[in-house]
Design a protein around this nucleic acid. Structure first.
Lengths: 121, 121
DNA sequence: TTCTGATATGATGACTTTATAAAGTCACTA
DNA sequence: TAGTGACTTTATAAAGTCATCATATCAGAA
């Protein structure tokens, strides 16, 4: 009753998907891409304010997890969401968050949904 | 055009939500809880095969991020999802994953959705 | 070919998360 | 009140993630 061998790796894969989403800049990038058909890296640099190499690393994480795809046309690289469902996921997360936040206000335990009071900058 | 001060912390909060989901055991726990109204820790220990203290740490992460709530009745502690939307999120993730996996099979780039080939145990 | 702009990759230090073991708390019973 | 079962917290080493800087690649201009 404890292990279903077939199921176990799936938890890992699922957790990895969320790992891909577990950084503010990556969320930012995905939300930018959710609103357009595609975007060149240069646009994302100016939209996020990130240094090119830093952004590039996050983009490579997103590529590795299969959340975005890129295409080079001339010297410009364009990115877009690999699947429209990625946008769905962000939207469901948004809905959940607004619940979470409302709830935390109601209960004035305003630290909810934050990583632990001490680690919020 | 680069920063919207009001929006920025939201990316952080959203990323934190995904961080809470970014571990196989926590996904496992949430899926267990998604299927019942509540579950005692002892059930989750046997369902996951985890050592009590290890499970407890993951439960505390989930509590900290506001994804689950616990209640002690006599000497048993019961957990349940803090919001039904948590189950929605998992379900959307599942749908996205099945797309991702199908797609990666079609393109025989079977490493998709995995953390980077080298870090898969 | 060499230069340049646009990205990507690699290396490194700072920091955070995870897994394991040991100690602690809480509620109940003998 | 001592003991026990059910958890939780603390401590710590190992592994992983992030930000920064230097270097590399790629495509078009000179």
């Amino acid at each position: 009753m404890a292990f279903e061998n077939d199921e176990r790796p799936l938890y890992e894969i699922k957790a990895n998907l969320f790992k891909g989403l577990a950084h503010p800049y990556r969320i930012r990038v995905l939300e930018i891409l959710a609103g357009v058909s595609e975007a060149p890296v240069s646009d994302m640099i100016s939209a996020t304010g990130l240094e090119a190499s830093h952004l590039s690393q996050h983009l490579s994480v997103l590529r590795r997890y299969g959340l975005v795809v890129s295409e080079r046309r001339a010297s410009v690289v364009y990115y877009r969401l690999a699947f429209p469902q990625v946008a769905d996921l962000l939207q469901v997360a948004r809905a959940l968050l607004s619940e979470l936040l409302q709830d935390s206000q109601r209960h004035q335990s305003s630290a909810l949904a934050l990583p632990a009071i001490s680690s919020v900058r």
